[in-house]
Amino acid sequence: MLSTREIKQRIRSITSIKQITRAMEMVAASRLKKVESRVLASRTYTEKMHSVLSHLVSSLESTHPWFAEKDQAIPVIKVVLITADKGLCGAYNNNIIQKVVKFIKEKTGKEIKLTLIGKKGYLYFSKGRYASLIEKYIPESVEKLGYSHVLALADQLIKGYEANEFGELHIFFTKFHTVMQSFPTSMRLLPIEKGTFGSEEKKPGGEYIFEPSPVQIISHLFPKFVETRLYQCVLESLTSEYAARRVAMIAATENAGEMIDELTSSYNKARQAAITKELLEVVSGAEALVR
């Protein structure tokens, strides 16, 4: 059994850990609140754009090159992975990284190029046997990535796609559902999947007037669509990260509390035992004197 002094020390250190985890939980909670409103606003935008595009595509006869599958001709897959910069957020990073690893294993025979957002993903891939796959790492921290950063990245990706540098573009991110629930998700951004817009029924009201021509509009709208989707993914991931961190820190704070309780009770026991022992010594010493 530990001495009372040692137990006291442990209680003290766990108490300070608890304070830290509680503070981290609060920080995550306040950041979560901020970013949550952003993700919801951006969702509306993406959804509206999606519906506009559906209308547009349903009235278009010709197919856009962005729908064409060209993975046969160009066996290169570009993967964008969004992770956190920091740990201490439960299984958040690991879940999405494992999804990518699984994807890489499935796609044998194709060349995979990784673009990494978030330090944790970079640390994982730069050490393992997949280090050679990393093509680009974006060192800015995820929370500081603004719309303009994402725009620049999307621009590069679109240019690369049009220049036939890769045949497919996949993005791995964590979709935010609720604070307790978020899902590691993968999505193919390019080429755009045929079913993406087809399902929506034509609304009544007749044919659209296009100004300028539909082809021109679509050639502007598609890049925008990819940009907003990418931005949406970054925001979703960021929100999930804060949510995951908050949940992890709540659990940590609770565990610390439990540990302190346990330690306090064993401290009390140890103290009681020491007192009893001392008493016994005094009594038996006194008895020895009497005789």
Partner: peptide, 19 residues
């Protein structure tokens, strides 16, 4: 202001997509 010139929209406008 559209890319093709300015325009106005009132209720019951025909379906339109423009930049």
């Amino acid at each position: 202001d559209g890319t093709e010139g300015s325009f106005g929209v009132l209720a019951d406008h025909a379906p339109l997509i423009t930049e």
